[in-house]
Design a protein around this nucleic acid. Sequence first.
DNA 1: CTCTTCGTTCAACGGTCGTTGATTGAACAA
DNA 2: TTGTTCAATCAACGACCGTTGAACGAAGAG
Lengths: 205, 205
Amino acid sequence: MPEPTAGPPPQSNPPPRSDARAEQRRRTQARILAAATELFVATGYERTTIRAVAQAAGVDAGLVMHYFGSKQALFEQVTRGGQLPPAPSGTPDQVTEQVLAQLAGSLETEPVHSLALLRSMLTNPEAAQAMGEGSLRYRNQLAEAIDAPDADLRAALIIAIIVGVVVDRHLLKFGILDTTNPAKIIAVLRPALLTLTTPPSPPPP
Amino acid sequence: MPEPTAGPPPQSNPPPRSDARAEQRRRTQARILAAATELFVATGYERTTIRAVAQAAGVDAGLVMHYFGSKQALFEQVTRGGQLPPAPSGTPDQVTEQVLAQLAGSLETEPVHSLALLRSMLTNPEAAQAMGEGSLRYRNQLAEAIDAPDADLRAALIIAIIVGVVVDRHLLKFGILDTTNPAKIIAVLRPALLTLTTPPSPPPP
DNA sequence: CTCTTCGTTCAACGGTCGTTGATTGAACAA
DNA sequence: TTGTTCAATCAACGACCGTTGAACGAAGAG
């Protein structure tokens, strides 16, 4: 049975009992997980190699398999724990500010789970599905907070914008967006998002 | 020398002389190119296999190599010919309309060159560079047409938005954006883009 | 018809991948 | 000390990849 010897590091709690071997084991698992995360974020699922992860962690490739079972399981372990942003609510201005605050955080330091998923979503079906499910849930929450006829469409556009900006800044790094102060980006983006969260004013007769 | 026997199909001009063999050859090259395009768009560079392209074209894998030299060259052949949108100019409203018109076209039927590039840009360095260069050129043109202090940033954001929306619609297909009438998307997006192309009004004292 | 050209197939190469099972050696238990 | 546990290494497997060069067979040239 190639079953992993134990459930990989349960988040991050201090070992209840002091065991020299168990702690060494946790250390190594953590090193592997860190190396895998870095590589998945940097090059995506397809180009990331179990052997490369092992080498980056200073470990044999077989050990990676022994601890995580498979490459796919390792990837899921890396991308697990990404939690949805809190559901926005309130007036259009309040919703906008909550979305912008969330985006500001993502521009400052986007969590590695999301980056690994974002990097791989265009080429890896599992990553695409994971992103899709998260996107759907957040879109529903967002649409519920938008009081406009095309709430779903507006929510989808907001998400597309966020994804586009985050991908540009953290992954593609085409320029400007990856070096500009997040506050400035937010400031320029605010009026644009406001038009999406605010119901259109009926044209004057 | 593994050099391709001839420069692959030079765009699309009618064969100057009628040669039964030459025409059969062109047909096969075109079939290979079509199959390669479809696979590159659907699954990206890494997951697309020379063997799979050959099979989809009803041909041996060696023939693909013989005609296109290498997988990378085949990919470049597929993504070649993507031309930049015309540089926008005029008043902010005019610039917005030109950008929106361009986006509308991309929502209706985005050219396969761009889709192949978009699909692979997150995992393939060459694709990323090609996209980056195109993005940079268009961003400069766009920034020149925007009369605002942060023209570069605004142009970059517009491009990020366009990329986000097009990727969502044609590649990720997370929902709504891929089934909604382009005109409707444009209508909802217009006010948002307008805030990016229009210089901010100074706050009243 | 003979010879050449060339579109196409075929078999194989070297390499890398994910994955596996046996093995080693140090930490623990007795 | 002796025996057990287990983190970690090692060598190898089968599969698949991009790529190559020889070989075949039908279309053109003479």
